[in-house]
Design a protein around this nucleic acid. Structure first.
Lengths: 167, 167
DNA sequence: CCTAAATCGGACCCGAACGGTCCGAATTAG
DNA sequence: CTAATTCGGACCGTTCGGGTCCGATTTAGG
């Protein structure tokens, strides 16, 4: 339940790009030097992001990349799905790859679709705009950084309704 | 952004166990035959779940496993964390493994903690009790199975506040 | 009390996908 | 027209997940 390194790098790079001007065009080399992501990996990632429609690429001597949309209209879910495919908890519910061993008597599949939508909503609710903010003064609402390193405790009723992601 | 096969298997097996009686004790072999999970994998998973405190193990001839708590007090987050470690989107924010390459000038790290809490809340809001329900008559509320196979579209403002997971 | 069956628990091995690197093709400034 | 700088795709190594096996432990039955 954690996103891959590539997705993490993509988020960092997109954030760095969003911190620049809106239509400003900047190269993969520049972003690599600024974020610390290895250059070839950065190129690969920006290629994927461009083919996904999040970045507009321009080739040539003074080419480079730029955000295809305003930072407010790009969400974390967009970036994650662009890099590591559709967000579906189980491969039973992603449209392809119907080679699940359980298959026949699996009474959980329909519920997984709902949970996947919930996670996607949680990631879709946070935009690049909110990520560019340098630091958040008040955490969220009396819940600074809860529940780390408890390996198997209960999280039930942690948040009865909704998750409370900042807009 | 998808959980591993082991976590998926664990959810299926826990659901199958919850569909039985509360204190009923049942062996790994039985659960394997019922769910379709390979037996050795089932043993391994149940061992992990037992050491995490979700199952109570009893060795011996008539031994087996049983739910350590009522199905209502076990959430998806519990199972996932028991199998594949703490739920943290980036390894920057899981307490250990501080070997991130970006490290120094990473302005995204604090936000990731919040997003991780959001995902954890989404998974913690759904309990085993709700997964044992055979089928849900009405999907959620006018949102049956939205947004599949759109590779890079916008998910912004998908759900303005909260995610709407059934209790 | 002893035997035997069935179980849990840990150690080993294989495979696939992620992650990283490289080089070629295309395009535009000079 | 030349050349510099860039994007785009193809290749390979490595780590982690996934599967299998065998030994240690415990309890029911004789």
């Amino acid at each position: 339940m954690r996103l891959t390194h590539l997705a993490d790098y993509a988020v960092v790079m997109m954030t760095a790009a969003a911190r620049r001007g809106d239509g400003e065009r900047l190269s993969a080399t520049e972003l690599s030097g600024e974020t610390g992501v290895p250059l070839p990996t950065a190129q690969k990632l920006m290629g994927k992001l461009a083919s996904a429609g999040l970045l507009s690429s321009a080739r040539g001597a003074a080419g480079g990349f730029a955000l295809a949309r305003p930072a407010r209209d790009i969400s974390l879910a967009d970036i994650v799905e662009a890099v590591e495919g559709p967000i579906a908890l189980t491969m039973c519910s992603d449209g392809v790859n119907h080679d699940c061993v359980l298959d026949a008597h699996c009474r959980v599949k329909p519920h997984m679709g709902i949970v996947g939508d919930a996670v996607r909503g949680a990631l879709g609710a946070v935009s690049l705009q909110s990520l560019t903010a340098p630091v958040r003064p008040e955490p969220v609402e009396g819940m600074p950084f809860p529940s780390r390193q408890n390996q198997g405790q209960s999280f039930d009723r942690l948040r009865p309704n909704g998750v409370g992601v900042p807009s």
